[in-house]
């Protein structure tokens, strides 16, 4: 899905020399990424959409300051994160950030749930709204710093270095947060891992 870097660089050069309409094309592969980044911070659909629009407009206005040494996707993610943080501060007061950052130093339980009897949840099960809600809920409940790293790395598929760069933290911190986020997620979803098989049905279509 991602454009090659050369093609992207070409597009950016043309936009900056006046072919502004091409910005639509440049941004299209990253629409989902920008929205998910905002959503991971503000956790509200309307607020995330408004923020995504602002972030994209801001990226357009500041495109001339984009340097080719970073990837465009990372640069754009940084803008989206800043927009999200701005909105969060506005909504909850300035205290929020400092409280959230401290969570990392808390000794928590980040061990996975040991399973002996579990069933793989097939992708088709995502047709069930209940499962989608459970997954979203489990992510939403993660503490901010873990939710953010998981979103960039596992949902948007940035690599470790890009995630670190976008968040302004070390790759070591990314790995620690990611590990904890994944373990918390596994633990929270255990009930679904144990009960995903649909009720068995008899030949007559009734649940046994």
């Amino acid at each position: 899905m991602e454009m090659t870097r050369t093609k992207e660089a070409g597009l950016i050069a043309r936009i900056l020399t006046g072919e502004k309409e091409l910005f639509h094309e440049l941004i299209r592969p990253y629409e989902r990424m920008v929205y998910l980044t905002l959503f991971s911070i503000v956790r509200n659909e309307t607020e995330a959409e408004d923020g995504a629009q602002e972030a994209v407009i801001s990226a357009y206005r500041h495109l001339a300051s984009f340097r080719g040494d970073a990837k465009f996707s990372t640069w754009l993610t940084t803008i989206a994160i800043n927009e999200g943080r701005k909105r969060l501060r506005k909504a909850k007061g300035a205290a929020e950030d400092s409280i959230e950052e401290k969570e990392e130093s808390h000794e928590g339980d980040y061990t996975p749930a040991p399973l002996t009897d579990w069933r793989e949840i097939p992708l088709e099960a995502l047709e069930r709204k209940e499962l989608r809600e459970a997954l979203r809920g489990a992510v939403a409940e993660l503490p901010y710093i873990y939710r953010q790293v998981l979103t960039l790395r596992d949902l948007e598929e940035l690599n470790i270095e890009e995630t670190a760069e976008a968040l302004g933290i070390t790759t070591g911190a990314v790995k620690v947060r990611l590990h904890r986020a994944r373990m918390m997620l596994q633990k929270r979803l255990v009930p679904y891992l144990k009960t995903t098989a649909p009720a068995r049905r008899s030949f007559f279509g009734r649940a046994l």
Partner: peptide
């Protein structure tokens, strides 16, 4: 199971 959850998410 962790891999499974991550793919679904």
């Amino acid at each position: 199971s962790t891999r499974n959850i991550l793919i679904l998410t």
